[in-house]
Nucleic acid binder design. Structure first.
Length: 386
DNA sequence: CAGTCGTGGGC
DNA sequence: TGCCCAAGACT
């Protein structure tokens, strides 16, 4: 039986994890679903056995085979991590997750936070709509759900910033519910496993139905295992099939072309846009603005700038000094941002906030404007006071 | 459906 | 260097 093949992982963390008896762990295992074929059940078991010995240790993850942490804020931590992990690497998320959970240890604390503080804390992580939706979601949980995250997938799905993937992930990882968790990792492993040649996104219906027959009772561990497998073995390029527990089952490996999955539509060329930002300095302070809530870098603190789609007039007349150009790549276009600077004896009457230059590093500028600020500060002699 | 929305790392 | 990529959601 599958349970006998399980062995205790080398290292474990979390309350009570080390004392969990084998018999208790076994109930999480995919013990013979009548609707599953033998082969599919074996695939899930092979993956879980691999995961038991190879799971990454992450602060938002309970160890393989372990019961859910008793911490009442566990779902909050899972949710926070999943929002941060959307299109973002584990390495990039970790310091932000640590900072957020230290500063806002539960959903009520986050819901009570000032918008500006959360946006500032999110600065540098990207996709800033996530931060706006993060606050909206925390406040909805407090207002509509008594400060406790719902465990039901459909209810989770109705909250701001939570789509199909995140709803399933929070239900499975945060509440131990049975859910079909599908992200880019799972898509890659699944399309290779079954050699699904339909291009994305049309392939998603097939992926879901194939996966539904594969997910065992331990749905959370299974999904985490798929992600670790995708990150370390079933990688986008040069997959290490020789080390893969699913090698015996994998149609793409058998055909010798795992790298050809998933099939994606051709990418559009990324245009280059040109824009201007203005460094306006007076008395050791620089003028900053908060960008409109929606759109690119929405809601973030920034330097005054044009919309880099057309011409824009400078916020004040005078002799502008060319401080250079910043190159920055966004998802669907590249930006060449010219930085023009002017140092004034007194602050002109302009909308925005004057920040001491010494405090700019912690001010929560997105990377684009942080680059522009570095450029401006690196050549103070280029700007003459008038 | 297809476009919008960041950033840093790897090759 | 330039391109692809990473635990997607929203419109």
């Amino acid at each position: 039986m599958p349970g006998r093949r399980w062995r205790a992982p080398g290292r474990r963390r979390g309350a009570g994890a080390a004392s969990v008896p084998a018999v208790e762990i076994r109930v999480f295992w995919p013990l013979a679903f009548p609707c599953h074929s033998r082969r599919v059940t074996d695939s899930a078991t092979r993956l879980l056995n691999w995961y038991a010995g190879h799971a990454r240790t992450l602060p938002w993850r309970s160890p393989p085979g372990a019961p859910l942490p008793a911490d009442p804020d566990w779902p909050y931590r899972v949710w926070l991590s999943e929002i941060m992990l959307q299109q973002t690497t584990v390495a990039a998320v970790q310091p932000y997750f640590t900072a957020f959970t230290a500063r806002w240890p539960d959903v009520a604390a986050l819901a009570a936070a000032d918008d500006a503080d959360v946006m500032q804390a999110w600065a540098g992580l990207g996709y800033y709509a996530r931060a706006r939706n993060l606050l909206a979601c925390a406040r909805a949980v407090v207002r509509d759900h008594g400060g406790r995250f719902p465990g039901d997938e459909a209810v989770l799905r109705s909250l701001p910033g939570i789509g199909d993937y995140t709803a399933a992930a929070v239900a499975a990882f945060g509440f131990g519910r049975h859910a079909i968790v599908i992200d880019g990792n799972v898509e890659r492993v699944t399309t290779r496993l079954f050699a699904i040649a339909t291009p994305l996104p049309a392939a998603r219906a097939v992926i879901r139905s194939r996966l539904a027959a594969l997910v065992p009772a331990a749905a959370g561990d299974f999904a985490q295992a798929m992600m670790d497998l995708a990150g370390r073995i079933c990688t986008p390029r040069a997959p290490r099939c020789e080390a893969c527990p699913l090698r015996p089952d994998c149609a793409a490996a058998a055909a010798g072309n795992p790298e050809e999955y998933p099939v994606k539509p051709p990418r559009r060329a990324r245009p280059v846009r040109h824009g201007t930002t203005w460094w306006i300095e007076a008395g050791g302070a620089v003028l900053t603005v908060v960008r409109p809530a929606r759109g690119l870098l929405g809601g973030m603190r920034a330097l005054p700038s044009c919309d880099w789609q057309g011409k824009a007039a400078p916020p004040l007349p005078g002799d502008w000094h060319d401080l250079g150009t910043v190159s920055h790549g966004f998802t669907h276009f590249a930006l060449q941002l010219q930085v023009l600077g002017q140092r004034l004896a007194t602050r002109p009457a302009l909308d925005g906030d004057w920040l001491p230059i010494s405090q700019l590093d912690g001010a929560g500028l997105p990377t684009l404007f942080a680059k522009a600020a570095v450029l401006a500060r690196s050549q103070p002699d280029r700007m003459e006071a008038r």
